[in-house]
Amino acid sequence: MQVLANIIFLSSFYVSFAVGLALVFGVMRTINFAHGEFYMLGGYALWLLSGVLSNTIPDGATFIVAMLVGAGVVGILGMLVQLTLFERLKEQPFSIFMATLGLSYVLQVVVVKTIGPMGRSVPAIFPGFIMFEGAILPIQRIVVLGFTALMMAGLWYFLMRTDLGRAVRATAQNKTGAMLQGISMGKIALTTMFVGSALAAISGTLMGSVLMIGPFMGAEALWRAFIIIIVGGIGSLSGTVVAALLFGLIDTLMTTFGAGKFAAMVDAIIMLLVLSFMPNGLLGSRE
């Protein structure tokens, strides 16, 4: 039972982190290497705000404010990246790779120099745990799981039920077709970067409340996210969710049975196997 709970918690983390990256890649065919740092900034938003707002509003409210503020600020940062880097470096994937990688280092250094290299943590916002069928379920984790579900539901609503979301999906599937319907590529790119970056920040705030916050927390998470979106099928959000569940399952089982040290290797092997037998990933489309 504990193992099942662990699988769900870990998978939800993988989903929340990878989904923004998958969205940006799916629509823009561009990898944002600073996605991990956007996630990290979401974590620091929680740390900063819980310092500033402590004793003024309830901790739970701080948590929500941090999510909104982090998402807003980082979303705008994402739009700036779109305007300054992606727009100007169109059709030059290697330059974009280098530029976003550079941005990721700059953001790390800025945090190291302003706040410090040591990790930070925030006081437990929802302390305590409940026992269920012999499993320990920390309340904080359950809250995070709930917000992750809410975030995914919000993303689903945006993409499936709004005109702008429909246009984003259409652009991801056929750029020329979308342009001919009068969809402005610039607007879609800005929207996508805002949403994708904001998702990273929300994920950072959520996980920052459970794990610890540090300048390099995003860099590590990014590689796992790459494996997830590649296995899930590049550009496929449902594939990303399926792959996140798969790796949440595998990684949890491996640590449970004492093989955790091989998890990174096994994950990489799975990725290679999926790529050799299903080059488009589990749910990716042929292009």
Partner: peptide
């Protein structure tokens, strides 16, 4: 036991066994 450092995203999983 020993663990791979990059497999330690989630303490709950690692510490359960």
């Amino acid at each position: 036991e020993s663990y791979a450092p990059d497999a330690t995203k989630d303490m709950l999983g690692l510490l359960t066994p």
